[in-house]
């Protein structure tokens, strides 16, 4: 019987170990997902940032970069691109800016999150300097121009001629993170 006991313990130990490993694997999927996004440009995540090595400018081709702005939830800032659309040669550094104004009566901090459509083009857009690299804080009524320096990699696939770079502005002013349940009516009861 002791021999059976040892066999049980061996099986249980292995299985408990593998379920703990799988729990860890569940969490490992998060960094794996980021690596996966880098390679495939999944979900329009712009991952190439920082100073770009000089690229040869491809004058024969112009790509139109469309800039759009979205305010998330009840973000009251005025937030829009200075130039809606720029035609630029791949390989040439582009420069533009976004305007942000805090019309409310108190200081607020915001975080801009970029996203590229078509997602396939995300891997070819390189942001040299962008206001989305760090949080932006504006006092009451303050307005600010936020620079954006970028370059489009010349070996962008030929069938892509228009890229949309969209920024979503999130309000991350630290305050009691009141959950949104107040929004759902409390009355879970039947209507009759």
């Amino acid at each position: 019987m002791a021999q059976l006991q040892r066999k049980h313990t061996k099986v249980v130990r292995n299985l408990l170990l593998s379920s703990v490993l799988m729990f860890g694997f569940g969490f490992a999927l998060v960094p794996l997902y980021d690596v996966f996004c880098d390679i495939t440009g999944l979900n329009g995540k712009v991952t190439r940032t920082g100073p770009a090595e000089p690229m040869l400018v491809d004058r024969s081709r112009t790509v139109s970069l469309q800039l759009t702005a979205v305010n998330n939830e009840a973000m009251p800032w005025l937030f829009e691109p200075m130039t809606a659309e720029m035609n630029i040669h791949p390989g040439m550094t582009g420069q533009t800016a976004f305007i942000a104004r805090n019309p409310t009566g108190k200081t607020m901090i915001a975080q801009a999150v970029p996203s590229v459509a078509p997602a396939e083009a995300a891997a070819y857009v390189q942001k040299i300097n962008c206001f989305c690299f760090e949080r932006q804080s504006l006092e009451a009524g303050q307005q600010q121009e936020m620079p954006l320096l970028f370059v489009i990699d010349p070996d962008l696939p030929d069938h892509i001629s228009k890229i949309t770079l969209s920024y979503t502005l999130f309000d991350i002013t630290p305050q009691l993170q009141a959950s949104h349940y107040a929004e759902q009516p409390q009355t879970g009861r039947f209507m009759l």
């Binding site: 973000m75 009251p76 019309p103 009566g105 309000d171 993170q177 949104h180």
Partner: peptide, 18 residues
């Protein structure tokens, strides 16, 4: 005016400014 224009974050009151 501030509540109607900018809403109240954390609640269902949306910003009606736009």
């Amino acid at each position: 005016i501030d509540v109607v224009l900018n809403g109240k974050s954390g609640t269902a009151m949306q910003a009606f400014r736009d």
